[in-house]
């Protein structure tokens, strides 16, 4: 599903590489934590998968896409196979819950009848049925993140990238969000989650890829956060 082969990324403005000779292979349906301190290269890792950046060296494959070589006009196709969730939710404050989720389908040209059918389904999946008409400001942080997850998942992507999705949430709410991500993972969706949250990583016992100064220093099939420090 995801394969990085000897990938290095050097930003023009930086003296040291953001990623250095990283090779990672993630299979379909896997749940992977990408951990590491700030500046270790987690975000660059995710950005490479989305073709927000291109590697300075090495190859990046996402499903059948050779990401670095992908012509610009095909980048949207790649991104349609990936759902994204962020720490700051990134909801549109002037749209309702339903409209926020529908937006992701509207902008890729899905017909209205499909939208009317699948949006309520995904809202139910994330546990927000009955809140379709609420505005984001009327929701708790956890609920807002659920809307963001619904939006990321509504087009049934092959994988979900989550960048610190629990970073703004209290531990209990974080746990709920993790359950939701697990549920999504069980549908066969690959989940890649960058996080600092030690307790979550420890409790989930999933694969852990740890980055430090742009290098992979650990890749455990069932890891915990603290190991290696």
């Amino acid at each position: 599903m995801i394969r990085l082969e000897n990938v290095s990324k050097v930003y023009k403005t930086s003296t040291r590489p953001a990623l250095e000779n990283v090779s990672v292979d993630v299979g379909k349906g896997e749940f992977v934590f990408v951990i590491g301190p700030s500046g270790s290269g987690k975000s660059t890792f995710l950005r490479l998968l989305l073709r927000e950046e291109v590697p300075s060296r090495g190859k990046v494959f996402v499903s059948n896409f050779d990401v670095a070589k992908l012509p610009r006009r095909r980048v949207p196709r790649l991104r349609q196979t990936i759902g994204c969730v962020f720490q700051d939710f990134r909801l549109l404050t002037n749209k309702t819950v339903f409209e926020n989720v529908a937006f992701a389908l509207e902008v890729i040209g899905k017909p209205a009848h499909t939208i009317r059918k699948v949006v309520p389904e995904v809202l139910e999946l994330v546990g927000l049925d009955g809140k379709a008409d609420r505005m984001p400001r009327e929701l708790s942080g956890g609920e807002q993140q659920r809307v963001a997850i619904a939006r990321a998942f509504v087009n049934r992507p092959l994988m979900l990238l989550a960048d610190e999705p629990t970073g703004n949430l209290d531990p209990d709410t974080s746990q709920d969000i993790m359950l939701l991500l697990e549920r999504i993972n069980r549908t066969g969706t690959t989940v890649l989650m960058a996080t600092h949250d030690q307790s979550i990583v420890d409790s989930m016992r999933r694969r852990v890829v740890e980055l430090d100064f742009g290098r992979v220093i650990r890749d455990d099939a069932r890891g915990v956060y603290g190991y290696g420090h």
């Binding site: 006009r73 980048v75 949207p76 994204c84 549109l92 992701a104 902008v107 890729i108 040209g109 087009n155």
Partner: peptide, 17 residues
């Protein structure tokens, strides 16, 4: 910019954005 950012992420084509 938020809308456009989301549009790009969910794979809207350039025409749409």
């Amino acid at each position: 910019r938020t809308e456009v950012g989301i549009m790009r992420l969910v794979g809207a084509t350039r025409w749409y954005t």
